[in-house]
């Protein structure tokens, strides 16, 4: 047992310094999407809603509703329409009210047929 005590002291403290310092490993984490508003036609919005397995995306009229609280950052929306979705890099998503996690993104209108 004394050897384990010595091993513990030798290994030292490895606790992350977050939030005082940003942890570099956070750059590898999956994060919710960011939408390129200029690419969001109704057609694109419907494709994104179809791709989402969690119900985080829905369309009502000319607005895309994104619920970050329902999003699992699976990346399927980005895979479905690569040009319209990018990785946001945001993982500090805590909010004091549920509705603060829901965004309405206006659409640019129907695409030409």
């Amino acid at each position: 047992m004394p050897l384990w005590f010595a091993r513990g002291l030798r290994r030292g403290v490895v606790t992350t310094r977050y939030p005082a310092q940003r942890d570099p490993s956070a750059a590898d984490l999956p994060t919710p999407p960011a939408f390129c508003a200029e690419k969001l036609t109704r057609e694109v919005a419907d494709q994104l809603c179809q791709a989402c397995p969690c119900g985080a995306l829905s369309r009502a009229g000319d607005a895309l509703t994104f619920d970050a609280g329902a999003c699992t950052a699976c990346g399927r929306c980005a895979q479905a329409v690569p040009g319209a979705v990018t990785r946001s890099g945001e993982f500090e998503l805590a909010a004091t009210r549920r509705e603060h996690l829901i965004k309405q993104i206006p659409l640019v209108g129907e695409s030409e047929r």
């Binding site: 384990w4 091993r7 513990g8 290994r11 590898d28 999956p30 699976c74």
Partner: peptide, 30 residues
């Protein structure tokens, strides 16, 4: 054995970070 547990968990955390660096997810989803 708390110190052994901590050292194994340090290794576990490092392996999760390897997963994230390699495939973008600590638990290899997706």
């Amino acid at each position: 054995l708390s110190v052994g547990q901590a050292q194994a968990e340090i290794a576990l955390e490092r392996l999760h970070r390897v997963n994230a660096a390699a495939f973008g997810h600590r638990y290899l989803f997706g």
